[in-house]
Amino acid sequence: MSVSKTPFRATRSETRADVTDRAAREIIDAEATARNQRITRLRSLRLQSEATAREVSKAKPAPKSRKKAG
């Protein structure tokens, strides 16, 4: 995807529909790229959080259960 000063300028061979189609596809591609970057960032943060939670749970000893008086 190339960025220019006039991204939606039509050439002589392009119709208005072609210009609109190209502009829409560029917008959709940009949104998809941003979404994938956001998903990757959030996934890595979630995995780090889960790893930290596992380390904390391993560090804590399990509470001893009390026997019921019966």
Rank of each mutant, 00 (worst) to 15 (best):
I39W: 00
K60S: 04
R66A: 12
G70A: 13
K60T: 04
E14S: 04
V56P: 00
P7D: 01
S57C: 01
S2D: 01
E26S: 15
T6L: 04
Q37F: 01
R12V: 11
D21F: 07
K5G: 07
A32M: 05
P63D: 03
K67N: 09
A23E: 04
R16Y: 00
D29Q: 14
G70W: 14
A59E: 02
F8Y: 12
S49Y: 11
S4M: 02
S49M: 11
K58E: 04
M1N: 06
E31Q: 08
K64N: 09
A51P: 00
R66P: 02
R54H: 06
K67F: 10
V19I: 06
I39R: 08
R16G: 03
E26N: 15
D29H: 13
L42Y: 03
E14Q: 14
A10C: 07
I28S: 09
L47T: 13
D18F: 03
K60F: 05
T52Y: 03
K67E: 11
S49N: 10
S49A: 14
S49E: 11
P61L: 11
A10H: 02
S65D: 12
K64L: 14
P7T: 05
L42R: 09
K5I: 06
A59R: 07
D21P: 00
R35M: 05
L42I: 10
T40L: 04
K67M: 11
L42E: 10
D29A: 15
R12C: 05
E31V: 07
D29N: 15
R41Q: 13
R66V: 15
K67I: 14
D21A: 11
I28G: 00
K64D: 09
L42F: 04
K5Q: 07
E50H: 03
K5N: 08
R54G: 01
I28H: 06
I27K: 14
Q48A: 09
R16T: 04
K67S: 11
A30N: 05
T33N: 06
R22Y: 00
R25T: 01
T15Q: 01
R16K: 08
A23P: 04
R66K: 14
A59P: 01
P63H: 03
R35G: 00
R35I: 09
E50N: 06
E31W: 03
V56N: 08
E55F: 03
I27W: 06
I28Q: 09
R12A: 11
R54I: 07
V3E: 00
S4G: 08
A32F: 02
S44L: 10
R43N: 08
A53F: 02
A17L: 13
E26Q: 15
T6C: 02
A17F: 08
